[in-house]
Amino acid sequence: MLGYKELPFEIMQTGEFYYDLMKSGRIKIVRKIKDPVTLQDPCNIIRRAGASEKFRYFVNATCENFTEMTPNKEHNFCCNAGGGLAGLSNWAAHKARGNRVKAQQIKETGAKVVITPCHNCSTGIKDVIKYWDLGVKNVFFDEILVQTMDIPETLKVGK
């Protein structure tokens, strides 16, 4: 499409990149998140690019208490912010009403934290949590990793 027959580089989402870092041992996980968590599967990265197992590896490695939403993986429901709907803040109530199933899914897991690997999902899940008053927290992938990974003391200033 863009004149390249075979790309001379790899393309990946940050979640897949974190998986590679953990798998190859470049990042070590030294703590685990104790709160019960669940994971929102982003449509395009899971359904279309097939990263579901990598994301599960990430969550299981960083969290102690992980409950799946049902349905999950390729059968997940969208966060309702995908497809360019994320920016539509004046339609927020309309969007959140249109995603009652997601609110039920989150409630049924009993999780206190919804992990989102994608910015669109983050927006959508926040809207759902707020509108349906779920009382749970939405946490992004990078925050989980920074909280649980090992940062060698020797890298810190003054050590």
């Binding site: 449509c43 059968h75 429901f77 309702n80 995908g82 497809g83 360019g84 709907l85 539509l88 969007k95």
Partner: peptide, 10 residues
């Protein structure tokens, strides 16, 4: 198409 479909392919 802009506010009631997320192009999620489900």
């Amino acid at each position: 198409v802009f506010t009631e479909c997320n192009i999620c392919h489900r």
